[in-house]
Design a protein around this nucleic acid. Sequence first.
DNA 1: CCCGATTCCTGTAGGC
DNA 2: TGCCTACAGGAATCGG
Length: 271
Amino acid sequence: MPELPEVETIRRRLNTVIHNHTIKSTSVHNAKLRWPIAPDFAKQLSHATIHSFERRAKYLLMQTDRGIVIIHLGMSGSLTVNSGNHPLETHTHVEFHLKDGRSLRYRDPRRFGSMHWIPDKPLAHPLLRNLGPEPLDEGFNGDYLYQASRNRRVAIKNLLMNSRIIVGIGNIYASEALYLAQINPIRRSDRIACVRYQNLARAVKSVLESAILAGGTTLRDYVDAAGNPGYFKQNLLVYGRQGALCNLCQTQIRNRTIGQRSSYYCPHCQR
DNA sequence: CCCGATTCCTGTAGGC
DNA sequence: TGCCTACAGGAATCGG
């Protein structure tokens, strides 16, 4: 399921294979995503030239000379570049046919994703307007997290997954970062000392950067823009490893539900 | 404002 | 082998 490292991996790949390529036509096979694709979507993008792909949180921003497409991959979305004659896979909802014969395809079996065209000012869009800082920006640090945690009684794992506080962290990397920082995921965010938030901020940056280097985490069906899986799964320390032994203390990794999401942690190391 | 619960969706796994 | 159910999760939205 694409979190920040997966979206960033896709973004980088797209920028290497699509630069100043022009859209010949756009096909919307199924407009019923998380939000319906607007009826004029294909028309707005006819003959648009794609300049680059940017990222904000888990959103991809396709920059063209005819506006911007805000793309979210939900939990099962992929965006791949195919040769024009590549067989169309099921659940391919949108195709951008490029002039050079290739097609950029948006596929999303579970349809939790979305696609919006806007003329300009993407950061003012309602979906992006209220997002917290990027975890890999220098402005994000332990002091920021500590301040954000004051007067908030939620479990720290829920704080990490709140995109108004900090973006890009989903269920996998929240568990991994808390393990690295040795913080119990259920601990109330307002009962964690400042020094521990310094560790947590470093852990967040570390796990996200490592995952990007590995090309993201493929649990089942994540692939990048060229169809390649990511290899961070072999580096996961707790996520999905219920019953396995903690690398540090040999205690069994536990799984419990926090905020309607499965969470993995070491009950001995994480306090 | 804060926060927990609900909701959308489909592929997969597990039980019988 | 086949049917049924539970589960996976990003994030908006709703209700208290």
